[in-house]
């Protein structure tokens, strides 16, 4: 099976996956940029965590990183 066909075959899986993962990431990135008060860490740290650690990063940010006035 060549690569193109492999991709085409898995599209029903890949499209929702990419949408959800990017959605979560972008929501977290927007939140990091708009609310510059964090419980700990700074903007750059949280951006790196949120962008490079898929799924875990954004969840970790929303639970532990974001400030009280959410």
């Amino acid at each position: 099976m060549n690569n193109a066909q492999l991709l085409l075959d898995n599209l029903p899986l890949l499209i929702p996956l990419v949408i959800l993962e990017f959605g979560l990431m972008i929501a977290a990135v927007v939140h990091v940029l708009k609310h510059p008060q964090y419980r700990f860490g700074n903007k750059v740290l949280w951006l790196v965590i949120v962008i490079f650690f898929q799924i875990i990063g954004p969840v970790f940010y929303f639970m532990f990183g974001r400030g009280e006035t959410a």
Binding site: L20, E21, G23, L24, V59, F62
Partner: peptide, 11 residues
């Protein structure tokens, strides 16, 4: 967040 994360796992 729960719904999104567990949906991702499901896929």
């Amino acid at each position: 967040i729960l719904v999104i994360v567990f949906f991702i796992f499901g896929i």
